[in-house]
Design a protein around this nucleic acid. Structure first.
Length: 421
RNA sequence: GGGGGCGUGGUCUAGAGGUUAGGACGCCGGCCUUUCAAGCCGGAGAUCGGGGGUUCGAGUCCCCUCGCCCCUGCCA
């Protein structure tokens, strides 16, 4: 099996393209075949080196490696011109106002045998003679694709649904050139929440945006695999090996799917929690560009859904930050300040200062004061984290350490005192 | 306009004539409980786009219809 991913470099790779690449890659890896990367850059205005680099970058991040390429379609122009010449000489194409058009017979039909949709019939009467080369001689999309797929000995063309209508044209070119076409499979398109085909206009849905938002490539692969494909009625999580083994075109659905970031977040959280702390720390440090204490990472892990969640949730374990005024106002009232002062005394004597002993200390204090747990815990939480949401309070306090915890509590007590005065 | 594709809860899907239409995300409630999550338990939500047929029986087969999307470019 020889498959290819042939994006046109129009900017960041969006998830629709990423899914097409993934499916092709799964097919190649599952069959022991080859995955060819070809950049469709014959439109010079849109194809910039930066855009090409973005695609390569996205594929690398997704860990979808290719066996051949990247080939530049533009660089194959001599071969395309040769094919155009051949078509004109054989009478399959003719010149019209300087451009070259393929002669489409009025009679007959071209049948596309699609692995996902079955046979699709196109009556030739509905297809006009179409242009295969501009008047300056440069080859156009349908010609270049047909020639390249033949030359690169592609056996299965797996691409988006939006190419179905172009398929009979490409088939005609291949046959006019004397070649048997490969097999085809057209994937349902990915739509935005507005129901339209996904494009750059739906901004956030690019691979680079997902990376920046803190998603894991393995989670993205799993999620993307399920957008348009299903294995059975219950399995949701697949290792990449399982995807390679189980993926098949026969089970690809026919209807368009809508990208749902909430579900991706959920799935990403599940993958995140499976990571060992060291690995999670490495990934966080790479994303945030700074070193992080292992303990802070361990404490935050169970509450993160994306890597980007770490800082807002647990950044206070790394550096002090300002109080959230709403949180302060809500918690630092009634007996809160007094409870906080008592907690300070108790923690000052806690030995050793670990999670277990911090918990014992604070729970004992709750008993002594005869208040509800949160009357003691929340003021501490606000004092050390600045807000009402944080990882577990005992772990947080222990991770922060005695001196830093006491310093922050003291600062909060001073502020509370100033408030009253 | 012409051609093509698609239509199962808000979303992703299972279903290849006989199931109380299954699962997942999200949502609601409960448990847990130190906040928020996670986890566990439970719940609401689909007359399978609509209408006709065929059949003892249709989401599954046939016809019609509606809706959405794609192509229709000297873009890809």
């Amino acid at each position: 099996m020889r498959v290819r991913f042939a994006p046109s470099p129009t900017g960041a790779l969006h998830i629709g393209g990423a899914r097409t690449a993934l499916y092709n890659w799964l097919l190649a890896r599952g069959s022991g075949g080859a995955f060819v990367l070809r950049i469709e850059d014959t439109d010079r205005e849109r194809s910039t080196p930066e855009n090409v680099a973005q695609i390569i970058d996205a594929l690398e991040w997704l860990e979808l490696d290719w066996d051949e390429g990247p080939f530049s379609q533009a660089e194959r122009r001599p071969r395309h011109e040769e094919a155009i010449r051949q078509l004109r000489e054989s009478g399959h194409a003719y010149e019209h106002e300087g451009a070259t058009r393929l002669r489409v017979p009025d009679e007959g039909r071209t049948v596309v045998r699609d692995a996902i949709r079955g046979e699709i019939v196109f009556e030739h009467s509905a297809i006009d003679d179409f242009t295969i080369a501009r008047s300056d001689g440069s080859p156009l999309y349908n010609l270049a694709v047909a020639v390249d797929d033949i030359d690169m000995r592609i056996t299965h063309v797996v691409r988006g649904d939006d190419h179905i209508s172009n398929t009979p044209r490409q088939l005609m070119i291949m046959r006019a050139l004397g070649h048997e076409p490969p097999a085809y499979a057209h994937l349902p398109l990915l739509h935005g929440p507005d129901g339209k085909k996904l494009s750059k206009r739906h901004g956030a849905a690019s691979v680079q945006a997902l990376r920046e938002a803190g998603y894991l490539p393995e989670a993205v692969r799993n999620y993307l695999a399920l957008l348009g494909w299903g294995y059975d009625d219950t399995t949701t999580f697949f290792t990449t090996e399982e995807l390679i083994e189980r993926f098949s075109l026969e089970r690809v659905s026919k209807s368009p799917a809508v990208f749902d970031e909430q579900k991706l977040r959920w799935m990403n959280g599940r993958y995140l929690r499976e990571l060992d702390v060291g690995e999670l720390r490495r990934r966080l440090e790479r994303l945030l560009g700074r070193e992080l204490p292992r303990e802070a990472v361990a404490v935050a892990q169970e509450k993160m859904q994306t890597l980007a969640d770490f800082w807002p949730l647990a950044g206070f374990l790394v550096e002090r930050r300002d109080y959230d005024e709403k949180a302060w106002g809500k918690v630092m009232r009634d007996g809160a300040v007094e409870n906080l002062a008592r907690a300070r005394e108790a923690l000052a004597g806690t030995e050793p200062f670990d999670t277990k002993h911090v918990e014992e200390t604070l729970r004992r204090l709750v008993d002594e004061l005869g208040v509800k747990p949160k009357d003691v815990f929340q003021p501490i939480r606000v004092a050390i984290s600045g807000t009402t949401v944080s990882p577990g309070i005992f772990e947080s306090v222990a991770t922060l350490g005695r001196s830093e915890t006491l310093a922050r509590v003291d600062a909060a007590l001073r502020r509370a005192g100033a408030d009253q005065a």
